[in-house]
């Protein structure tokens, strides 16, 4: 079990010395994750808003579909995205395979249901008096939308954090459509998979701790922002 202790020290060395391979994997992880979280927020927040705020026919069915999408396995998403982005696939012409945007496409599919479902349930549990109060204070429809969104900002940030956690820790998509290409699409998780595959357990644990450290930094900065 020496490699657990080893891994801990290796993690410190990697972080303090700024090992270029590790930094590249960190940068790739963050780029792919922020791109996918951003797209998911742009698409998922309005979708979740509609799903949680308005009453319409088929709302229940839509919720069931979104909740089911939460269970999508990452390797399956990876396979699906590969099938579309492969040069033999319908979107092969975009030349996205084995690039960070390709990883982000897959991660967006992963994050979108999380953000949609969590935004919807935040709005679901929203006090009905908010709408009433805003209209009675003279809000028009646009002001109503933005103020409501602002009122649930912590809920949306929490949704983004949850999705971020899911996206940064997935390995199936990054491996399948990113290809784990050194200096380009090697994320922290695919690097862990690679190191483990090579039997370099200490390196794997070090990288895992690096990922954990990033999560810590992100969460601390969010809690500062909330204050």
């Amino acid at each position: 079990m020496d490699f657990i202790v080893d891994g801990f020290f290796r993690a410190l060395v990697l972080l303090i010395h700024g090992d270029p391979q590790t930094l590249s994997a960190v940068a790739t992880t963050l780029k792919a994750a922020s791109l996918s979280i951003g797209i998911s927020l742009i698409m998922g927040v309005p979708a979740g808003f509609c799903l949680g705020y308005y009453e319409f026919r088929g709302k229940k069915t839509a919720r069931i579909i979104v909740d089911t999408m939460l269970a999508l396995p990452t390797v399956f998403i990876g396979l699906l995205v590969y099938a579309f982005l492969s040069n033999r696939g319908p979107l092969g012409g975009w030349g996205l395979l084995f690039t960070i945007p390709a990883i982000s496409v897959g991660q967006t599919i992963l994050a979108l249901p999380v953000i949609t479902a969590l935004t919807a349930s935040t709005l679901d549990s929203l006090d009905q008096d908010l709408r009433l109060t805003l209209i009675s204070l003279g809000a028009n429809k646009r002001q109503l939308f933005f103020t409501t969104l602002w009122e649930v900002r912590y809920g949306i940030v929490a949704a983004a954090m949850t999705a971020m956690g899911r996206v940064m820790t997935e390995v199936g998509i990054s491996m399948m459509v990113g290809g784990n290409i050194k200096w380009h699409t090697r994320t922290i998780t695919t690097a862990i998979a690679l190191e483990t595959g090579k039997g370099m357990f200490a390196e794997g644990i070090a990288l895992g701790l690096v990922l954990l450290a990033i999560a810590l930094v992100v969460n601390v900065s969010v809690s500062v922002f909330r204050r």
């Binding site: 908010l130 204070l137 003279g138 912590y154």
Partner: peptide
């Protein structure tokens, strides 16, 4: 919109 205003039964204050 700006001439009539309602105060609901339970006061709702924004965060």
């Amino acid at each position: 919109r700006h001439r009539v205003t309602l105060m609901p039964q339970t006061p709702f204050l924004m965060r």
